[in-house]
Write a protein that binds this DNA or RNA. Structure first.
Length: 236
DNA sequence: ATCCCGAGGG
DNA sequence: CCCTCTGGAT
């Protein structure tokens, strides 16, 4: 009976996942959520803004945003049009402003303006799904409710052959089964850091990747076939 | 599956 | 120009 995966002599999935997790820990010992926030509500808003946008850009707009709208009550009293100018650089600004205002009003009505600590309650907020909820629960409250599956985690999980699924919901379930719950949040953060620094979407730097020996997608760097300029000094 | 949407990199 | 960035709703 032939296995339907390329084992290459690798250990079975859980052990390989643990190895990858461990290597990433050595590579990014200080990896943490890179959004700036002062309280759970600000983290929730910052995470909502981070959709399809670099967190660097989110951190660029949040100081002025939270100066004008410091809490849920401030957003709840505003119209989305008043929030839009502050969040415009993050893209999807009309939806994001609308969702932030709607979510703030919901938090004020049902949770005294505070961010709930349960997945079910967070999922009731407009513009909040599992990715955002996982970030808030883990980062603000230290609760490993699930694995944060964003664009980086999805891409690296597939390239590394950690999961077979391609849709975020199933990827999350498969990743949760691979590592102990205590590691779920760190796994996401480490994959994201590696995705940003090395295993990029466009042009992955396989040549300097420390996970190459554990990666079924590893390819040698494409050879530079462009005509090379010859320095005059090297001529006779 | 499609839409929302700005900014930066190659 | 095209692709990508810690997605979510319809």
């Amino acid at each position: 009976m032939m296995p339907n995966v390329d084992n290459r002599g690798w250990p079975p999935p859980p052990q390989r996942a643990a190895l990858i997790f461990q290597h990433l820990g050595q590579l990014y010992p200080d990896a943490r959520c890179s959004l700036d926030w002062r309280n759970p509500f600000q983290l929730l808003v910052a995470t909502m803004l981070s959709a399809q946008c670099t967190d660097q850009r989110v951190n660029q707009v949040t100081p002025a945003l939270f100066d004008r709208f410091p809490d849920a009550a401030s957003f709840a009293a505003a119209e989305p049009e008043q929030v839009e100018p502050y969040v415009r650089p993050t893209g999807f600004y009309r939806n994001k402003a609308r969702h932030i205002v709607s979510t703030s009003r919901l938090l004020l009505e049902r949770h005294q303006g505070r961010v709930p600590k349960s997945m079910e309650a967070l999922l009731e907020c407009p513009g909040v799904a599992r990715k955002t909820a996982n970030v808030v629960l883990a980062t603000a409250y230290g609760l490993n409710a699930g694995v944060t599956v964003d664009t980086h985690v999805r891409r690296l999980s597939n390239r590394l052959g950690l999961v077979a699924a391609t849709d975020p919901a199933r990827i999350e379930v498969e990743l949760m089964a691979l590592l102990p719950q205590a590691d779920w949040d760190l796994l996401s953060i480490r994959l994201i850091f590696h995705g940003r620094a090395v295993c990029k979407a466009r042009r992955p730097a396989c040549g300097c990747c420390h996970l190459a020996d554990l990666c079924p997608s590893h390819r040698p760097e494409p050879m530079d076939t462009r005509p090379q300029r010859v320095s005059p000094l090297t001529r006779i």
